[in-house]
């Protein structure tokens, strides 16, 4: 019959169980969030696509073209897709432990599984949306495909890392300090226009450039844009700095997360 996993599993068995739990949580979350009505789980990437599309049309309509030589569509798609990554991930993890507490009566379900499953959903949504929009717009000749695909992927993964690390840190902190949830929304709002989504660093004066590059995500956005249209623009970034910042966030986030998972009390 069904033998449950042995009480003291090997590392491979443990990983297999964790994979199983994360998959189960993802399916549960996707069905809960999007339901089975109309297009169902397709909302996962249609929702971010609509957002990006709306912003693209808005920026196009406002004739923001004058800020750079870039075609507005490509500019908006790369910019807004990046925002989706680092802004939605923390939003999904803040306050995600409480509603899932009772699941932790199943011993194999841990805080990290709840976090990872939600991060994967956000990553998939934003990534599919980014790729789909690029292909669709390229088909209609509204934007061109990236000049250096590898660079775009690297930049995207760096932004993903940043988003995940920030999300885990804020999600874990929010368990102990309610104020995190209150502060994150206005903070995200303020950082959004500074994140490099709506401008390129090269248009700023020198001092402004140095200051703004302290924000880790802007390095990633610039890198992605260089991958897209490196021959047209001058990008400014320091990927080593971004990696360091990501690493610090990751270590802090994981430490805090381990602490709350030790203390978590299912209802």
């Amino acid at each position: 019959m069904n033998t449950p996993s042995p009480a003291v599993p090997s590392i491979f068995e443990a990983l297999r169980v964790q994979g199983r739990v994360i998959y189960a949580l993802m399916m549960r979350e996707v069905i809960t969030r999007y339901g089975r009505h109309n297009i169902g789980f397709l909302w996962l990437f249609v929702e971010p696509m609509l957002f990006t599309l709306a912003v693209t049309l808005l920026w196009g309509g406002l004739k923001l073209n004058h800020v750079s030589a870039l075609p507005i569509t490509a500019f908006a798609v790369t910019g807004y897709s990046s925002i989706l990554l680092w802004r939605n991930m923390p939003g999904r993890l803040i306050g995600s432990v409480q509603p899932n507490l009772s699941l932790m009566y199943h011993r194999q379900v841990k805080v990290i599984d709840v976090f990872v499953s939600r991060l994967l959903i956000e990553f998939m949504g934003a990534t599919i949306s980014f790729i789909a929009l690029t292909i669709i717009f390229a088909t209609f000749d509204w934007m061109s495909l990236p000049e250096d695909l590898l660079k775009v992927i690297e930049g995207w993964l760096m932004l993903t890392w940043f988003g995940c690390a920030l999300a885990i840190l804020l999600g874990a902190l929010a368990e102990d300090y309610e104020i995190i949830e209150k502060l994150w929304h206005p903070l995200a709002y303020i950082i959004m226009p500074l994140s490099g989504a709506g401008f390129i660093v090269d248009t700023l004066p020198k001092e402004g450039q140095d200051a703004i590059l302290w924000l880790p995500m802007i390095n990633g956005v610039e890198y992605i844009r260089e991958g897209f249209f490196g021959s047209v623009i001058v990008s400014h970034y320091d990927m080593a700095y971004m990696a360091e910042a990501n690493l610090v966030l990751t270590v802090l986030g994981l430490a805090k997360m381990l602490k709350i998972s030790r203390e978590v009390t299912p209802e």
């Binding site: 069904n2 449950p4 996993s5 297999r16 169980v17 199983r20 739990v21 998959y23 189960a24 399916m27 549960r28 069905i31 809960t32 339901g35 199943h106 194999q108 379900v109």
Partner: peptide, 17 residues
Amino acid sequence: TLTGYDNLRFICRIYGI
């Protein structure tokens, strides 16, 4: 908000059956 069947599947998934 999910069906009984969804919840059944969730339990089966996390226990690998």
